[in-house]
């Protein structure tokens, strides 16, 4: 509005003096807008910080009743019983740890292979473009659809397997969830792995080749050691992803609040118990679930900060070596 107005002011003057209009401009008004603009920018920088603080404080505040009642022993408690108002989060901690690490274990050979495939063997070309796009599509598919597919396609297969193996054939459970989670996190560690592998300086590789090393030896002795910390960071970030992943796990883990007896047992993760119970929860149950959410938030925050810190450090080191 103010702008239009000032434009109007100068319009009349312009007619007589098309050139050298500098003097006619309302500088004070610009000055005011300039300051307001700078303030808005700084405030919006502040908003993100405040937002994150507010998230943390809200979680803390609303889980206070549970923190006061159960304290740190919350994480040792084996029973989660809303009827008895007895809440212990150990089953969900175990469930989360088992599913995430199992998923990680399954995904690592695959994501490493893709990283090496795209970062070293086939950097360009139709097939690598195809693989890259496919991985991106894999990352883009919504979690709930992984859950749906897992429920109706993967679960019957696992159940059949369980029958053959002679374990209780639930079909759903930690193993099924981990399989789906593994597929879901491959794109994350693979894309980071590919980037750090392509950062390995060419002269290092050439030096090894010139000594007569095979590609396998170059990968094993030069590339992997050089890119190791970056690949670990990628795996760490994928772990953060797996810990927080909700929908697919909620649909496939079997919603059981007991400590799992084996990797084929139904269970609950921190995220899935919130998804399953929060909508109907009140009072101390809701507070306990928010307490679980708070821990989830803190854990993923730490994992993310460490992972990103490693990646940033590698980026700086790489640019230093190139420069």
């Amino acid at each position: 509005m103010i702008d239009n107005h000032s434009a109007h002011d100068t319009k009349v003057l312009c007619l007589n003096r098309p050139f050298g209009v500098a003097d006619t401009l309302p500088e004070k008004r610009f000055d005011k807008l300039e300051k307001r603009f700078a303030t808005i920018l700084t405030l919006s920088g502040l908003v993100v910080v405040i937002l994150l603080l507010a998230i943390f404080l809200s979680l803390l505040l609303y889980s206070m009743p549970a923190i006061k009642t159960f304290g740190i022993a919350f994480f040792m408690g084996r029973t989660w019983d809303a009827a008895a108002s007895q809440f212990g989060a150990l089953p969900f901690l175990v469930g989360t740890l088992l599913t995430s690490f199992l998923a990680l274990l399954i995904s690592i050979p695959f994501s490493m292979s893709i990283s090496i495939f795209l970062g070293e063997y086939f950097r360009e070309g139709a097939f690598s473009t195809f693989l890259k796009s496919s991985i991106e599509v894999l990352a883009g598919i919504p979690s709930v659809i992984y859950g749906l597919w897992g429920l109706f396609v993967l679960m019957p297969v696992v159940r059949y397997m369980e029958v053959k193996m002679g374990v209780p054939p639930y079909g759903v459970g930690i193993f099924t969830s981990s399989l789906i989670l593994a597929v879901m996190i491959i794109p994350f560690s693979a894309s980071i792995g590919r980037e750090v592998i392509s950062l390995v300086p060419a002269d290092l590789k050439e030096a090894a080749y010139s000594l007569g090393a095979t590609k396998y030896e170059v990968i094993k002795r030069i590339i992997i050691p050089y890119a190791r910390s970056g690949m670990i960071a990628g795996i760490l970030l994928a772990l953060g992803r797996a810990i927080g992943e909700t929908m697919a796990v909620t649909m496939l883990i079997g919603n059981s609040n007991f400590i799992p007896q084996s990797i084929f047992s139904p269970a609950n993760t921190m995220a899935s118990v919130i998804a399953n119970e929060f909508a109907e929860a009140t009072g101390i149950t809701a507070a306990s679930l928010i307490y679980v959410g708070l821990i989830l938030f803190i854990v993923t925050t730490i994992v993310n900060i460490v992972g990103n810190w490693i990646i940033k450090k590698i980026g700086i080191e790489a640019s230093r070596e190139i420069g």
């Binding site: 702008d3 434009a7 098309p18 050139f19």
Partner: peptide
Amino acid sequence: GYKLNGIKMPRDNSDAI
């Protein structure tokens, strides 16, 4: 210089400039 500073002028004028 005119446009970005929000100075409007008739078409003939800007054509001439």
